[in-house]
């Protein structure tokens, strides 16, 4: 394994008295696309929320670039380059596309704002046609591109994409996954949190399957594709 960028060990966490994550172990190496798969309600979004400091961690450790980050604030985590593109996009509907992107570099990447914006526009040319339009008026696919673009403005070292394909037409999902591959080709490490098992495994180097707050299967995409357990539960084969 090449150098580890993110290492999660024994992570526990939840909301109120409800424990959602019951000891999660996961690791990501620089330059990889790692898919975190599982159906609704198994704790995928909780995991990404704990990674970025939105939800507090109950136990275990998260090491990013060799440093423990489970006690840091969302701002300190952003400063280190761990950027989260949330499920449901959470773009700023009342701001223009340009302003949404500008705020992507509110803390990190501010010095290169203009250059990074050019880059985002080159990856998502459709956004430039909508530059001065309010983000709330964009289509679902465009909003997802904006959310990813806003994340890229912060010069991420690890980009967490939480359900980027949700609510998109099959054609757009195809396009979105191609774009994710393109970004990864530029050297960006990506944690892809998805329910869309088959398509995610096609682009991911490795995958972790989550069930009931813990990782039940992991391995390279090729290994998992042949796993009878996965075939039965997720791919509807056999």
């Amino acid at each position: 394994m090449s150098d580890t960028l993110l290492e999660i060990s024994g992570l526990r966490g939840g909301y109120g008295a409800v424990e959602v994550l019951r000891g999660v172990d996961l690791d990501i190496a620089s330059g990889e696309i790692v898919a975190l798969l599982g159906s609704n309600g198994v704790g995928k979004t909780t995991l990404s929320s704990i990674l970025t400091g939105l939800v507090s961690c109950w136990g275990g450790a998260i090491r990013f670039k060799g440093r423990e980050i489970q006690k840091l604030s969302p701002r300190a985590i952003i400063d280190m380059g761990l950027i989260h593109v949330p499920e449901g996009r959470h773009i700023f509907p009342n701001l223009s596309v340009r302003e949404n992107l500008e705020l992507g570099s509110y803390r990190r990447g501010r010095a290169n704002r203009a250059k990074n914006m050019e880059h985002v526009v080159s990856v998502f040319p459709r956004l430039s046609e909508r530059f001065d339009q309010k983000a709330g008026t964009l289509s679902g696919g465009e909003q997802q591109m904006l959310a990813i673009g806003r994340g890229m403005m912060a010069e991420p070292e690890l980009l967490i994409l939480d359900e980027p394909s949700i609510g998109l037409s099959p054609l757009l999902v195809e396009e979105m996954f191609e774009l994710i591959t393109t970004l990864n080709g530029e050297g960006l490490t990506i944690l892809l949190v998805e329910q869309n098992v088959l398509q995610s495994m096609e682009i991911a180097n490795r995958a972790f399957v989550m069930e009931n707050g813990a990782i039940t299967l992991s391995g390279t995409s090729a290994e998992l594709m042949d796993d009878p357990e996965l075939q039965r539960s997720y791919l509807g084969l056999v």
Binding site: P74, I83, H84, F92
Partner: peptide, 8 residues
């Protein structure tokens, strides 16, 4: 939430 995620 979006604001928190860009570090506001």
């Amino acid at each position: 939430k979006g604001a928190t995620l860009v570090g506001i």
